[in-house]
């Protein structure tokens, strides 16, 4: 029932993107996001879209698999688009009682919608091509300089990797409980909103219960192996920048430059 959730999942492969240092990938995505908001006209947006498509192609993640992950966010995108379309004041193009669409609204909606989709595509490429462990290591290393100001870098990274690790487990668990309750005549997709929310109780109670139980078990397992946080912890695979990372960095700088230049084109 829920096999479609691919958020945060790793797709094994050996593309260039898989081999990049996680720090490079995280920083590159930050740069991409910034560029995405620097860009202010359609040419720029098209450029960003092209980059995004190129990145997906390079990652060698099957397009079908990739889009299945995106299906989840359609609702959020549609909501954003609708809000932008109806709420932006300006030249009215179309009106029906209190609803009105403006020229500025359409432009905003297209922009925000595209940005959102691109944003999520590129971040899902990050998790698709990076193992959770590499991702955590990367985040931890990047946050290290901020430790001086009290940012718990290791703990944050650990929390995130555990969260990512448990997404598929929880999905599986939800699926199992849904089926068990459906076998007892529960239905999750019929009735009005109140009935639907009520129908979630038989799903959520067992789910929370088992999640807490799992958390408890995990904590014990970690303690049994003498886990005590990040101090003095060494790594099996130390992160190392290579020539590929340098190339990626240069490409990123080009991207920002192009984004800034694109603002002058109109």
């Amino acid at each position: 029932m829920l096999g479609d959730i691919t958020i945060g999942q790793y797709y094994p492969g050996d593309s260039v993107l898989h081999k990049l240092d996680p720090r490079t990938k995280i920083l590159a995505i930050l740069v991409y996001m910034v560029s995405l908001f620097i860009v202010n006209n359609f040419y720029g947006l098209l450029g960003m879209m092209a980059i995004s498509i190129l990145v997906v192609a390079v990652s060698k993640v099957p397009v079908k698999y990739f889009f299945r992950g995106l299906k989840m966010i359609i609702f959020i995108v549609l909501l954003t688009v609708a809000l932008q379309m109806f709420m932006t004041p300006g030249d009215v193009v179309w009106q029906w009682s209190f609803l009105k669409i403006t020229k500025e609204g359409i432009k905003q909606a297209v922009f925000m919608g595209t940005r959102l989709v691109l944003l999520i595509s590129i971040t899902s490429i990050l998790t698709l091509t990076t193992t959770p462990i590499a991702l955590t290591d990367g985040i931890e290393r990047l946050l290290k300089p901020f430790q001086r100001f009290g940012v718990p870098a290791h703990e944050l990274a650990m929390m995130m990797s555990i969260a990512l690790r448990f997404i598929p487990t929880l999905v599986e668990e939800t699926d199992k409980i849904m089926k068990a309750q459906a076998a007892r005549g529960a239905s999750f997709d019929t009735g009005n909103l109140i009935e639907k929310v009520k129908a979630l109780v038989p799903l959520l109670v067992p789910l929370f219960l088992s999640a807490f139980q799992r958390a408890d078990e995990l904590a014990i397992a970690m303690e049994a192996r003498c886990y005590h946080g990040g101090t003095n912890r060494t790594r099996l695979k130390a992160l190392q920048y290579t020539g590929k990372d340098l190339a990626a960095g240069i490409l990123c700088i080009c991207m920002v430059a192009a984004a800034i230049i694109s603002r002058t084109v109109s």
């Binding site: 199992k176 409980i177 089926k179 068990a180 309750q181 076998a183 007892r184 005549g185 529960a186 239905s187 109780v201 038989p202 109670v205 067992p206 219960l209 088992s210």
Partner: peptide, 27 residues
Amino acid sequence: GIVFQYPEYQLFEETVERDIAFGPRNL
């Protein structure tokens, strides 16, 4: 009627009685 593996994980009600009644209530 299907009883899944480890069916005890599907329990959710406050009392035994109410939990057993979940199926019939849905009918």
